[in-house]
Design a protein around this nucleic acid. Structure first.
Lengths: 152, 152
DNA sequence: TTTGTTGCAAAACGTTTGCAGCCTC
DNA sequence: GAGGCTGCAAACGTTTTGCAACAAA
């Protein structure tokens, strides 16, 4: 199963990272990572806490600590849709792109290999790229129709 | 002068938007827009307040109200670098792209016409794109060197 | 005159911090 | 055993809210 494999790789990466940084392999950190890699889609500190409370309660401070850590070893990425911060497992292989309605705030992600290829061509001097995020902002069909009605 | 022209267009767009939405053309809204279009680079509510206090004090609540309004009519865009929210005049013509160091949080913007062209090719059904933002995440030279030293 | 908008202050919200105690190494 | 990590609660900074007064239409 691909999901399980992904989870194992994530744990390996965390282990390696902690060892090279001489940080501790606490059960909390691995439990939080496990929950993240057991779900799909976006999440935040609060939803993570709710999930963890079911079988392994962890304080919010520790969750924020872990999220910061996972960001550093590139296990997760951080987005901001509207004002809310959302995290996501780092997309492997094909990058995810996002379309966000500026009116209702709804968002969804999609993949586009062609786009990914174009973007990956871009090189930087004195900057080591690990990943990129692309957001398309606009008005969704639903809101567009609502506006038309309103302006009549 | 291009900056002045840009400002006039912005005011026109705001006027139109307010009229179609049957909202009021208050001096505060136009003053805030004026300050935004008199500066360059990134800004937030607080820096805006500081600038406004010099000759036309406006309450923070009103500033947030105005920022929300300007977002809706696409006069400004919102970014989140690290955890800080930053606004920017909507880039006209050439889109801006951003590189952000995941370690120190420093960011800078650049333009890339080739990239812009590739991205603009992407079309959507049932979604009316007004603009897009692309962020490159990585480790800047300075932090990269710092890490090397640390791991020795 | 009507009612959308403002200013003010208080409240809410997500996140960070300080510190004592715990547990990994 | 040392000190990095955790949990708790208090503190923080930013954004939102409720409400009375104001002013655009």
């Amino acid at each position: 199963m691909s999901g399980e494999n992904e989870k194992i790789l994530a744990k390996q990466r965390l282990t390696e990272f902690l060892e090279t940084k001489k940080m501790r392999k606490t059960p909390e950190r691995f439990k939080i990572l496990d929950v993240i890699y057991s779900q799909s889609g976006f999440f935040d500190a609060e939803s993570l806490k709710k999930n963890l409370d079911l079988d392994y309660p962890v304080s919010l401070a520790t969750i924020y600590n872990a999220l910061e850590l996972f960001l550093q070893c590139n296990l997760i990425i951080r987005h901001t849709f509207g004002l809310r911060v959302k995290y996501e497992k780092t997309p492997v292989g094909s990058s995810h792109y996002y379309q966000i309605c500026m009116q209702c705030g709804n968002y969804k992600s999609f993949t586009d290999l062609k786009l990914k290829k174009s973007i990956s061509l871009r090189t930087f001097s004195a900057f080591n790229i690990t990943n990129h995020s692309l957001y398309f902002y606009g008005i969704c069909k639903k809101c567009g129709q609502k506006n038309k009605k309103q302006n009549r």
